[in-house]
Design a protein around this nucleic acid. Sequence first.
DNA 1: ACAAGGCGGTATAGATTCTC
DNA 2: GAGAATCTATACCGCCTTGT
Length: 300
Amino acid sequence: MKLVLSRKGFDSSAGGCANPILPDGSLWPLPIPDEDSPFRYGQLQRNGIGLADLLADLTRGRVAASMGAHLDPDLERDDLTERTDPHWQPTFGQQGAALGHLFKQGISPGDLFLFYGWFREIETTHSGWRFRKSAEDRHILFGWFQIDRWLDMSRTQNRNRWQARHPHAHGTRANPNVLFLAPKRLRLGGERTRFPGAGSFSGITPGQVLTEPGGARGDWLLPSWFHPEGRASVLSYHADPKRWRQAPEGTRLRNVNRGQEFVLDLDHYPEAHDWLHQLFTAAKATPAHDSEKSIPFPCE
DNA sequence: ACAAGGCGGTATAGATTCTC
DNA sequence: GAGAATCTATACCGCCTTGT
């Protein structure tokens, strides 16, 4: 099994601000702008809060409700107002160089993406939403996606079927281009869990926070077992030993300034299985959708 | 094998806003 | 209104990927 740490949502260039932590402590990873997407920012919501106004405040009008939103990964049915598709299921598209990296790393069904993003607390004022002044910039895990299988979106047939339902079926896309589908339930260590195969954490538990307390957001404090010394492989993009430092409180990692998908081969890091189990046990996550319909299209 | 592209990050400076 | 804090725009850096 492989674990992929995948950065998603607004960043310093796409969107240009942090993703909000709402006053109730919930995380809202924002889709990056994409004019080819079938979805608009004005169609998105969470917990009854419309994204249009919140986004106008936080970006000072740079990102408008009429702009296209790259809803990917698509983890929550209710993120889109009036989602009527009875066959909706979580999806996650990957393409181009990022996907090339994943294939090169030997990604296969059963592997698990953990999504993280740049998050900061927001508050309401007389003039609307804003980032809380003293709030820290942190990288925080906000969701997951286990690979059940994937569809080749370079095939016209698949693009036509998914046109209204996923950004990767729209516009000009780099090759390779695939759409990942998740199993109904997350499987960890061969055991079926109570969590859906893909979903999002509803709040923040300490295990989800990657950034070292008080540190810059690219300075991570990870569990001790993460250190690559004596292991047969290392987190991809992070082979330089100077990035790693063993400390009493854990392993410090200076995150690379580029790349979006960091792959860890858990065959060489068996401790990760317990860590994953604890992460999901502690975290509050969206409940599994027992009413899910069967998957509409055959595996390609 | 090499060069170029792409892009997320940091550093910096100037502008703006906040606080007293 | 002054100084501090914060925000914004810009330049620069690093480095994997792709194209030649």
